[in-house]
């Protein structure tokens, strides 16, 4: 980070004097900033070892990888595993589930915490505000295993709170088997995710809101803005940068939504709605000893993520002039 912040003005200067030899300028600059470069080395190495070295394993996707053989002894098969992947019907089903759940998660998991943060910041009572905030982010620290247990119990047909409530209100006359209905699975996952992460995701917005200059609010009050108008014209624009950056990053993660939720809440009945890409890679790749196939899924995953990230970045840059690259 230090290196970047320091380099930025330098770069602007370089753009101004383009006719000067770029390389010699670069070396001179580097020399004068050698301490900063030195400080950056551990982090560059870190990224290297954990993000770039493993890329070597991608070669596996183009082989019929057999464990126990050396690299030279593997059979190279080109794009065979990608062809297998794209011709498997199940893959499209799994993609549908993955994208459906991540889009639902993105929409709900994005708007609600912002709303929550804005409303929370409007509260006057300091202690009440803090209590609500703390209570709301506690579920973030509960493991999915436990959350899945709670959700299953809540939705149980036998003494589950949700069914009891619906029965009590005479809205239904038979308990509903929520977890046996495939078409409801996505919503259940999204709702439980929201419950778990709402408070936690709101923290960063709350921090951004507290960074807004209070004078802006005073000025708007003088101009006669009511609280709704203040929220709309000051709070929301004030955290716009935060929102766009987080949006771009979560779009980049759209396809890699993990599998704990789906794995723990799913059952055989809803398999067609609950199997996501990571589970598919586990079941049809690793567990069957198809390491190459699993790697092909991993490559697909990464490529799509990068494309999504650039697309989101590009679109937002055009629309809001904000971007992370």
């Amino acid at each position: 980070m230090e290196a970047y912040t320091d380099k930025t003005p330098g770069k602007q200067a370089a753009a101004g004097a383009a006719e000067q030899s770029g390389l010699s300028r670069f070396w001179r600059k580097m020399k004068s900033q050698k301490v900063l470069y030195f400080m950056a080395i551990p982090f560059v190495l870190w990224v290297f070892v954990f993000s770039y070295l493993p890329l070597w394993g991608w070669t596996m996707a183009f082989q019929d990888f057999k464990p126990g053989r050396t690299f030279m002894e593997q059979d190279w098969v080109g794009f065979k595993h990608f062809v297998d992947l794209f011709t498997d019907e199940r893959f499209y089903l799994v993609m549908r589930n993955t994208l459906a759940m991540s889009f639902m998660g993105l929409i709900v998991g994005f708007t609600v915490p912002i709303l929550f943060a804005v409303l929370l910041s409007e509260l006057r009572g300091k202690y009440f505000k803090r209590t609500v905030q703390t209570v709301s982010y506690l579920p973030h620290f509960v493991s999915w295993v436990v959350v899945a247990g709670i959700v299953t119990k809540m939705l149980s047909t036998e003494g589950g709170a949700v069914n009891d409530l619906l029965l009590g209100l005479n809205l239904i006359d038979q308990p509903i088997q929520f977890l046996a209905k495939g078409e409801w699975f996505w919503s259940i996952v999204t709702a439980s995710d929201l419950w778990k992460e709402l408070g936690w995701n709101a923290i960063i917005y709350l921090a951004a809101i507290s960074g807004i200059d209070p004078e802006l609010y005073e000025a708007s009050r003088v101009d006669g803005a009511n609280r709704l108008k203040q929220m709309w014209h000051i709070t929301l624009p004030g955290i716009r940068t935060t929102i766009s950056v987080l949006l771009i990053m979560s779009i980049g993660h759209l396809i890699s939504i993990g599998f704990e939720k789906q794995f723990l809440l799913g059952n055989n009945l809803v398999m067609d709605y609950s199997e996501v890409l990571d589970l598919y890679a586990l079941n049809y790749g690793l567990n069957l000893g198809r390491f190459s196939f699993g790697t092909a899924i991993g490559i697909f995953n990464s490529v799509v993520s990068i494309l999504l990230l650039f697309a989101a970045n590009g679109v937002l840059k055009k629309v809001t002039k904000e971007s992370i690259m």
């Binding site: 560059v44 770039y52 070295l53 890329l55 070597w56 053989r69 050396t70 690299f71």
Partner: peptide, 16 residues
């Protein structure tokens, strides 16, 4: 840097 990294791993994986 990436190219360098690849070269390094290639060297390492010989000892399978």
């Amino acid at each position: 840097l990436l190219a360098g990294a690849l070269a390094v791993t290639a060297g390492c994986s010989g000892s399978g």
